[in-house]
Design a binder for these strands. Sequence first.
DNA 1: GCGGAGACCCTTTTT
DNA 2: GGGTCTCCGC
Length: 720
Amino acid sequence: MDVSQILDPLNDAQRQAVCAPAGHIQILAGAGSGKTRVLVHRIAWLMQAEGVSPYSILSVTFTNKAAGEMRSRIEHLLKIPAGGLWVGTFHGIAHRLLRAHWKEADLPQGFQILDSEDQLRTIRRLIRDMGLDDNHYPPKEAQWYINARKDEGQRPENIDHRNDPHLRQMIEIYHQYEAMCRRTGVVDFAELLLRAHELWLKHPQMLHHYQQRFKHILVDEFQDTNTIQYAWLRMLVGKDSHMFAVGDDDQSIYGWRGARVENIHQFGKDYKNSSIFRLEQNYRSTGNILNAANALIANNSERMGKNLWTEGEEGEKIRIYAAFNELDEANYIADQILTWVEGTGLRSECALLYRSNAQSRVLEEALIKNRIPYRIYGGLRFFERQEIKDALSYLRLIDNDRDDAALERIINLPTRGIGNRTVEVLRETARNNGCSLWQAITTVQQEKALPARALQALQNFADLMQGLIEATQNVELAEKIEHVIHHSALRTHYAKEKGEKGQARLENLEELINAGRSFEMDAYDDDLPEMDELAAFLSHAALEAGERQAQEGDDCVQLMTLHTAKGLEFKQVFLCGVEEDLFPHRLSADDPARLQEERRLCYVGMTRAMQRLTLCYAEKRRLYGDDKYTRPSRFIKELPAELVEDVRMPGFVAPAASSMYLQEENNTGLKLGQRVMHKKFGEGVVLNYEGAGQHARVQINFANAGSKWLVMEYANLMIL
DNA sequence: GCGGAGACCCTTTTT
DNA sequence: GGGTCTCCGC
């Protein structure tokens, strides 16, 4: 067997990892070191050199994009379809298991998936129905709480309320929410993972079957695994199976959503005989960029340890641009891009990365002003769009009449005279009888619990749904969708919406029909039960919300958050707003662990750059409506001086508008850094201003009392 | 049932 | 500052 195709494109470290003898293996793969390549080639190696059957390989990723890329690269390398091989996301694989074993998992056969938005709506509804004040129990917080507990593998009955009444109530909300999901036959994202874990916990013989089957378990982005994902993996790894975990602790940026970098350390403890390989040769960035990134990340503690290097050239220094304000920052960047393009560079080679989405607007405006086309990542994806979710809700209700969330969404959409009062009566009836809202319609009608007009409106809705159910039996999926969009009058409803928006919505609805036409059921390799095509389509819509929408194609500058940029690379990168309080974000600055995550985020951002990296900060920034004086991020100071260069023109004088602003601000009579004395708090230093004149507030860092915001009018400060 | 006024919020995102 | 949600009046 000729394996040269598999091994030749690899460097020594990669080859060692790919050919490592069976055993538990951990790969620490630095940014741009060929991580995906190693995973793909490892799978190819197992199959072609070791004669491993694709049937016994499981490869897990976090995103559908990564899973898709992995599968296609494997097929490209092997030049055959990799049938039988399981490649998927944690959620996709859990879903597959639960479909196959719905009975053992104690789920209804046709269970559907509740996406985050539906989950939030459900929880909001529930909190109100429980008679709780949603100011005291914000639905968002409850949602976060529930998902976090599920990610940790906890059910409400296992959580200690520690006699805390608020916590006790949160647990009760979790409890009620669970009951609601059971009643309506839906499962949220976190539940997929938790159920899949419990499924094996409760059915050891089934676990044994999968342990026997999957001899090789490969995990991508291992640093992003949360508690339940790692527990699930550990369970699956039987005594004859091997885990191949690829990750980078320095690129762990999802701690805030439950990811545990500690799992990387835990791996070595759990698998004492495991070996570890490091991929440190970088094929992406210049030496200067790597050295600067290395220096930055060296400020973090408890690292596994890793130093990126390159055979390539040193390259340019890292540029630091100190802007006067956010407009100046944006203009500078636009200007630099124009220069880049004049020098035959492509716009698409340039990326503008920022910490938070709110920063994008000013950048966009500057790009528009300079007629620079751009593409912005983020925002709604196809299956998350309002009109698409409306249409899907009809389909969900057809598929499962217990789906209350779907019914609530469309019972009066388009409006058909079913008001809030009517729906309230339905809810109450459903609650009292422990039935679905759909069933409650019949009950309410029988009991004549509403005025005749409302009853008639309900009857019309019931007739409509009944008609849709009958008309969509035994027809092609696309035809089903088409029929629903047309006869529910969603199409006419959105046609009435004026302007481009309405037009776009209509086009999206058409696109949904197309999606139905091109939808292919996964051809599963084993004994998975036949799944109804509509149900499969709905699951697909929830699990793969589709591409983030943006005008594709043209040569566009790329705008995105630092988080979104992970895994991507660009010749020229601008990190925008590299300022204290923005990056690191002020909400993360106090907690050392979160601060380290911010630093890793900066590391991720810097290592996206291949040739040129510019860090920008503004000395003053308008954010959330008011102006703030800012300080450059501590991350800038952590870069070795010999690797950076200041690109603000020396001796440059602030433009008139800017200096006027400064004067106006300065009528507090104080300058930044000014030492002052306060009667009560003692001596301190001026850190920041807000507003102007006598209503201005000033932030002072007191030597003994810490940092405080004071109103000038009352502060009575003495200048020292 | 809809549209306007006011309250409220505001980090990062995938499934 | 701006986007979203809620409430109230028509």
